[in-house]
Nucleic acid binder design. Structure first.
Lengths: 189, 189
DNA sequence: CCCAACTCTTGATAAATGTCAAGAGTTTAA
DNA sequence: TTAAACTCTTGACATTTATCAAGAGTTGGG
């Protein structure tokens, strides 16, 4: 599994950093089942997860227990509750495996150490932070400026893999609509 | 105006950095009128703005021309379209002064130079990026998991200054509802 | 200081989306 | 392999929110 991570780092930096051996030992393999929870509200998020295989759903629940998905992460991506992680404060979110997963996780202390000691690691973190922020900004703008049908079309164009891979219920929870509305509107396209 | 920025930097770093004189000369004062646009969709965002006095609205428009506000920024905050700025690509957003403003702006080239040369500047940027990302994550979660009334209450508790300062129309555009709905629901609290 | 332009509120109505229910199809885990 | 648990779709209906309109109040730039 570490080869996947090595490849990911190489791709991001353009070359294999010579200090890669400082980085890899800090990662621990985790094998999960479908439905496993990696984080629950109130819990302090101790890890950042790199996805070798599988899919993670980051979500919250409302007063009625309905789930709203903030983001899905798949192969070659990183998932965590960044703010809770960086500040080591209780999270408001769940992280769940939507399918059996092969993950590599790095603990808070290791992460901070690498970020301070290995400039390439800090650089990758900054890259990911900027892209994540941008994605979330985009998401706010789609949620406030598009109706349900437009958001569905947006997702089909911009997240076709996610759209094809996950159940309607999960997709609907990402789009901020009910599963029934998703079914009905899809037939109008 | 530069004193305000100096104070801001001191507050964030805990002390006045000794290389502050490397930083300040890169900032240029901008005085605006109510309604002035600092950025329009399609334009490449060349500056980051520090608000000494006033309020900036970052928003998009939908197919009908309705405005959706992504964020309001007030005194002692920074505003820009970070992704468009960092990648120097055309923006999708507007930035507008909701009132006459006193701003300090820093140009893209200067910003990159300082981020590379002055570690404290890079640190503040990282801080702001993390907090901005967190705010936006929170915003996605409120937009998808709360109804209009809950979002209004959330805003009254979490953004009371913004709520008191801006018109209903602007508040509504931030909450993702019409101004009429805001009026009606406010009377139910 | 004044008036045109904006703002807030309220009503009537329309449109979008949610909720509940039920049946057929599909998947999963023992 | 099979039963139980999900999933998808559709219908009927309820609820939320938007839209359009109009009048009273407020404001800010000349």
């Amino acid at each position: 599994m570490l080869e996947t991570l090595t490849q990911h780092i190489t791709n991001r930096l353009g070359k294999l950093p010579d200090n890669i051996d400082l980085v890899l030992p800090h990662f621990e393999a985790v094998i999960t089942k479908r439905g496993d929870l990696l984080l629950q509200p109130g819990e302090v998020c101790k890890h950042v997860y790199f996805i070798v295989e599988g899919c993670l759903q980051v979500f919250v629940t409302d007063k009625n227990g309905n789930e709203s998905t903030r983001e899905f992460y798949i192969e070659d991506q990183w998932a965590t509750d960044i703010f809770g992680f960086q500040n080591q404060i209780p999270s408001a979110e769940y992280i769940r495996c939507t399918e059996p997963c092969k993950l590599l996780r790095i603990h808070y202390e290791s992460f901070q150490k690498l970020a301070n000691v290995v400039p390439q690691f800090a650089a990758i973190y900054k890259q990911i932070l900027e892209v994540s922020y941008n994605n979330t900004v985009y998401r706010v703008n789609t949620l406030t400026s598009m109706d349900a049908l437009e958001r569905i079309k947006w997702m089909m164009e911009n997240k076709p893999k996610i759209m094809a891979r996950l159940s309607s219920k999960l997709i609907a929870s990402y789009l901020g609509i009910s599963a029934e509305t998703l079914t009905r509107l899809k037939s109008k396209i």
